[in-house]
Amino acid sequence: MSLMELQALARDRKKAGPRAKEATPDNKAALVFLAPWLIGVAVLTVGPLAASLVLAFTNYNLLQPPKFTGLANFARLLSDTRLHHSLEVTFTYVVIGVPSALAVALLLALLLDKGMRGLAIYRSIFYLPSLLGSSVAIAVLWRLVFGGQGLFNSFLGLIGIDTQKSWIANPSTALGTIILLHVWTFGSSMVIFLAGLRQIPREFYEAAATDGATTWRQFRSITLPLLTPIIFFNLVLGIINAFSAFTQAFVVSNGTGGPSDSTLFYTLYLYQEGFGSYRMGYASALAWLLVVIIGAFTAINFWASRFWVHYED
């Protein structure tokens, strides 16, 4: 059966009446389709997740059996000033970094989606920064660009601002350079946006054009609503990933979160506690606090999505 016939069938059904609801749930089929995932969860996920939850109530130094310490780790969460500082750093990063990167990615995806010459090349070039990812080369380069004698200051010099400021080494601007590094790797989100844009049936635009809708109107009433599931995805994952951001700060500060803890991301601190100081019990408590925080943001996101995300089903 061809797709075209199917669609015709679907249209007939639609004309015939409201969508038929199946009475039987798809439990069996779900079991089949979810089988790999379920095995994975049972064997690889649930155990370690539960173990880390249990460890959060212990003193576990990796080399000796964990010792139960009750709520001691959670009590420490309240008084740990480095933790509070790392939360501040991470929230700043999420609040500024996520919207900026998404805006850049969406704008460029929209521009690229409208046909233009050489766009395959642009698309590939824009994606390059994401390929380099966590390369040590990036750490070296970032210093050369945002250091006191760096390229960025030379550029500022060209437009008449003469400064020797080391953006990467000043505690008040170091985080900014890492946010820039994040925005710079907008390619991943852009690719997802592009794929989403390509899923919007072209006949919608044709119909709209026939009706004489302006480009802006087409964007407002077709592109944007139909892209909302993907915008939502990028937003949810962007927030989750930003809260868990590790690699960029690790590479740029060589794992220290410096200068003066100004780039001490939450997971970087967690890593320092777990693997640097061998306090895996406390690191587990930190992990579950993070889960609660991210979980809350994600739940809010899902709740809010009802009001703005448009699904075809």
Partner: peptide, 8 residues
């Protein structure tokens, strides 16, 4: 600042 730049 200069020191922090190459500290790590």
């Amino acid at each position: 600042e200069q020191y922090a730049e190459t500290a790590t």
